[in-house]
Amino acid sequence: MNVIISIFKIKIDTDIVPLNLTVLFFVTIVLLTNRRKLDSIYALLSKTGKTKIEDIFLDSYSTDIINAKEIIQTGIHLSSNLNEYYSQYRKMLETGGHLKILIVDPEGHAFDMAAMRFPNGVDSKQERLRAISSLKTLNKLVDEFNTTDVKIEIKLIDYLLEYSSLIVNLNDLDCKLYIERYTFRIYGGSKKPKFVLNRNSGEWFNLFNHEINSIWALGKPYDKDSLK
């Protein structure tokens, strides 16, 4: 009881008489228990709270490309991605994987708007050239792997995409959805915000999955012989 008395700073000579120490004991236990629960919650939140913008994907991004049975990928031109992970795409295709990829049409108007994203101004021709470079890279993969079966499908769209995406094995329970958000005059280049969703992500997964598949459906099939 001395502990309880010290917690509530009770003066024995004046306060103890009107108080029932048994009730006070249980009140103290409840208060201390709730305090421990709150401390546990605060500790958990401090560990799991997301306040930092992630600008890199997990190491699983590379291995997921290699081991994928199917990939659906969209982006403005995806030139950096195709250059960095070219060998991973080849390994995926070598083992029978199927690649669906969509980028912005270099002959369309969307690149005029895309160039506005950069703080110092960029000529839209530069962005179009990056798209053309990506198509040339994809043409090489098409020539190598689309010999008997169609392993690579390429589409173009004249629309300014808000983010690039990569869906791995959409029909599997462990499907992953990688998102890299395009920015406007902040966090450009490799610093663009990135995050990963799966089926446990609930409505966010459903939202992006629906959008990406709708974008793919609206894209126009690319004819590699039309590349100038």
Rank of each mutant, 00 (worst) to 15 (best):
G108L: 08
Q126M: 09
T74G: 15
L102C: 11
I56A: 12
E127G: 02
F184N: 00
I10S: 03
I65N: 07
L44P: 00
D59I: 10
D172G: 03
I72S: 05
L173F: 02
S201C: 09
L170F: 07
K136E: 10
K224W: 00
K228N: 06
S226P: 00
L160A: 10
Q73K: 15
V3P: 00
K194S: 02
I29P: 00
L227S: 02
D174A: 10
F208M: 04
P106N: 02
E127C: 04
I7W: 07
Y86Q: 12
V122T: 08
L31K: 09
L82K: 07
R185M: 10
Y85P: 00
I65D: 05
N146A: 01
Q88A: 14
L99M: 08
H98Y: 11
S40L: 15
I101Q: 09
D158Q: 03
E203V: 14
L135M: 13
I76W: 07
V17E: 13
S80I: 06
T95F: 08
S201V: 01
F208R: 04
D158K: 04
T95G: 04
Y42R: 09
L44H: 11
K47H: 07
S134Y: 04
N146M: 00
T63W: 02
P119S: 02
Y86T: 08
L129G: 02
L173V: 03
M113Y: 14
S124D: 07
I65V: 10
S134P: 05
S201N: 10
T95V: 03
T28N: 09
V3H: 13
R199N: 03
I7D: 00
F8D: 11
L161Q: 01
L58R: 14
K37P: 00
N206W: 06
Q88H: 15
G121V: 04
P221F: 05
V150M: 05
V30Y: 13
L24T: 01
T147R: 11
R35S: 09
D55F: 03
I132R: 12
I29K: 06
R199Y: 02
D15Q: 10
N206Q: 14
I101P: 06
S164F: 05
Q126C: 04
K136M: 10
Y86K: 15
N198P: 05
A68G: 10
I4N: 06
H98A: 05
N213P: 00
I103G: 03
D39V: 14
S87D: 14
L197D: 04
E153R: 12
I179A: 06
K176Q: 10
F145C: 01
I10F: 08
G96K: 01
F145K: 02
N209Y: 06
K52T: 07
W204Y: 08
K9R: 14
L102F: 07
S46E: 15
L218T: 06
N34M: 14
S40E: 13
L102G: 08
Y89G: 09
D105G: 07
F57M: 07
K140Y: 00
S79Y: 15
S124F: 10
L173D: 07
I16E: 09
K47L: 11
K50R: 10
N20T: 06
L197V: 05
N206D: 13
D223K: 05
D59G: 08
E107I: 04
K47S: 10
G97R: 12
Y178P: 09
N20Y: 08
S214Y: 08
Y61N: 03
L207S: 09
L58A: 15
T95D: 12
R199P: 05
N213H: 07
Q126K: 13
